[in-house]
Design a protein around this nucleic acid. Structure first.
Lengths: 136, 136
DNA sequence: CTTGACGTTGACGTCAACGTAAAGCAATAC
DNA sequence: GTATTGCTTTACGTTGACGTCAACGTCAAG
């Protein structure tokens, strides 16, 4: 569905800004905003933006980051991490250190999330108990 | 430590705005902002705000909600839910329905979070592998 | 060749979540 | 007394994350 490009053989599939925007259910303005912040950098054919699979992957990461409540600047450092240079040992060690920080952050969030869920569960139990005491 | 009030016996302990702000590591401006939005409503002794345990509990909930990335308005509906009237059956059923919605939201977040964590783990593995191939 | 449909770049608007500065009251410190 | 804290309100400023609008280019269809 909606495989727009001429994709005969070997030719990589591409998308327009409208297409990626609709696919991820955001506006084209949002997509361009992310580009202004350096989160995506689509190919330019003349003045027109051409989006590749790579861009769609990154957009997916961005939106998941947003659902998790990260600010865009932080999201940028995260996804940049994924294709940071890792040729030299020092670079790899830096990346590994960053990974640890990220993980600590995410695990804190998971603790908060689990707390919130168990609290909600206890609250529901209380409510159901109350309900059982109300006649009719 | 910093038990400000005159707390002789039976008297409930209270706190000033500075005290709660420092305890939760936010500014007093932030605390007042939450009050403006109706998320907390401390007692007033004349013009001065007096915070009780109830207010501290709510502030804790607010900040956890923020760490989870919820907007303050949504946080308000959540914590209001916790002390909504549940006397009548219809009210209880409404509350239970809200609880379900909340839970669905939180579980979506947990999925996102778990995805992010496993992805991070895979990435770390790749990095460690790369590292093992670099001599010295 | 004109009309859409879609693309582009500014530039300004808006809303949330506070920060910050100005100015005042009120109790303790000296 | 005055001075210093600590609390208060009022009010404007800032930052992030877009929305919205104007003005224009481009290309296939009629």
């Amino acid at each position: 569905m909606a495989t727009r490009s001429e994709a005969p053989e070997g030719t990589e599939q591409t998308w327009t800004i409208r297409e990626v925007a609709e696919e991820f259910d955001v506006t084209h303005r949002t997509v361009r905003h992310y580009e202004e912040l350096g989160l995506i950098s689509p190919e330019r054919r003349g003045t027109t933006r051409i989006y590749h699979r790579r861009d769609r992957t990154r957009l997916g990461l961005i939106l998941r980051g947003k659902r998790l409540g990260f600010p865009l600047e932080e999201i940028r450092t995260i996804i940049d991490l994924y294709d940071a240079p890792r040729g030299r040992r020092s670079q790899l060690e830096y990346v590994l250190a960053q990974i640890d920080e990220r993980r600590a952050d995410l695990e804190q969030r998971r603790r908060d999330l689990d707390d919130a869920l168990t609290e909600l569960g206890r609250f529901e139990d209380r409510c159901r108990e109350d309900l059982s005491k109300i006649p009719r």
